[in-house]
């Protein structure tokens, strides 16, 4: 077993274990913290695949910024474990059914996909390195990249507009 394999298996165990704990923990704040651990483990996987930029951006954006927002909301709502209302039995059944169906679809699509036969290359390949990624984004994929940035900008403007509205109604 090489170092890479050991890292891969321990990162995988960490990712799956903490992902299970996200669902299983009773306290929503604990769930968020386990989700952060999951993101860190997935970042580790990216780095094993030599996609350093993706790995670190995953850390900054998902584990950092987005999870802070999650924590903000959950901490301010102060969700406690006792107040949880009993859910409708039929609703639970429907949830299990739809979740199972989703799993089925994912497994089926992965089975039929071309990538199923390809083996992920660890520690080699240079497409994930910063320079190559930047060159690809700004030459081959300029238009999708710019459109995505306009999308983000419009989302930001929308958020500002929503924020402004509440302020004017208050005063």
């Amino acid at each position: 077993m090489s170092v890479t394999e050991i890292l891969f298996y321990s990162l995988s165990a960490m990712a799956i274990g903490s992902a299970l704990l996200v669902i299983l923990s009773k306290n929503p704040v604990h769930s968020v913290l386990w989700l952060i651990v999951t993101f860190v483990a997935i970042s580790g996987h990216y780095i094993l695949l030599n996609a350093q930029f993706l790995g670190i951006v995953n850390m900054i954006v998902y584990a950092g910024a987005i999870m802070v927002l999650f924590l903000f909301v959950i901490m301010l709502m102060n969700l406690s474990t006792h107040k949880e209302a009993k859910k409708n039995k039929w609703l639970q059944m429907a949830g299990v059914l739809s979740g199972g169906l989703l799993l089925l679809v994912i497994v089926a699509s992965l089975k039929g996909a071309e990538q199923a036969t390809l083996v992920a290359q660890t520690n080699e390949g240079s497409i994930g390195l910063l320079e190559n990624l930047g060159k690809t984004l700004f030459t081959d994929y300029v238009i999708p990249f710019e459109i995505a940035s306009v999308l983000f900008l419009s989302a930001m403007v929308g958020a500002v507009v929503l924020g402004k509205k509440t302020e004017t109604t208050k005063s």
């Binding site: 930029f53 670190i56 951006v57 850390m59 900054i60 584990a63 950092g64 390195l129 910063l130």
Partner: peptide
């Protein structure tokens, strides 16, 4: 070779 981004990742944590 992503030294500065690493620092940002840690600061975010």
């Amino acid at each position: 070779n992503i030294g500065i981004l690493y620092i940002f990742g840690i600061v975010a944590m």
